[in-house]
Amino acid sequence: MAVATPQRSAERAAAAINQTAPSRSGGERAFAGVLFFATIIGVVVLAVLLIDILLDGLPRLNWQLLTSYGSRFPEQTGVLAGISGTFSLMALVGLMAFPLGLGAAVYLEEFAADNRFTRLMEANISNLAGVPSVVYGLLGLSIFVYVFQLGRSLLTGALTLSLLILPVIIVAARESMRAVPRAIRDGGLALGATRWQTVSRQVIPAALPGILTGTILGLSRAIGETAPLLVVGALIGQRASTAPWEVFDRFSALPIEIYGLIGRPQAGFRESAAPAAIIAMLVLLLLMNSVAILLRNRYARST
């Protein structure tokens, strides 16, 4: 008996461990599994979406789709108006948003005193990033179309998109300038360079890859934007294409053409022409993002 007691209690303890251990580690494993599922489901949906679009769109994706205007027949329609519009918009948006965004970022990061106006500007920029894009469309409609009398023109579209992506560019440019060591600024100033000389010749060049990456990401956001362009009055499915210098002409854009195709009653537009045009748009986005990643990697290696 004297021997059996500790033995039995040891057995009981072992049993207890055997009982709790599997349930506890099972619960742990299940929880980890649930979390992994939550993370991966977005990726799965992304994959399903891409496969779905590719299956529907690839058979219809051909040269003709990219080089003709809209048509009454799904098999003859094309999105040339959208492609030319998107390229023109991007050229203008890049031209306007890059210098403005960089200027604002340089001011906030290098020159602004820590005062109320600066803090207001900063809070304002993060708020603007959260304003729905359709509201930017209303801004463009009211201010650019009517107050500035620019009409439903390419310029109106480009101005609207520029304001929309400005916060993206400003935030990215500030981040990459902040990554430039203070010692570089001190070194420039200690040589008798002015602040602007130091910033323009040392800080901005050092931060440029990051700034360009941010700009490209901003532009690729602008490529997909549909709502604000609809609101300012982009043309849908018409035989109009615009070059970047035809700023007062009416315009279309790739996502606008896609929206037009989705809205047509015949299934051929929605179920094959639209996915085909989407593939074209996604390829464009992929190209731009690859350039951005390439820039970022080269930057990471060189410093």
Partner: peptide, 26 residues
Amino acid sequence: IGMVFQKPNPFPKSIYDNIAFGPKVN
């Protein structure tokens, strides 16, 4: 009144450009 810092802080540029920066901006 020039200054040399605790940690070497050359500009991320060529050796030549590092020296030429000061005379240029001045």
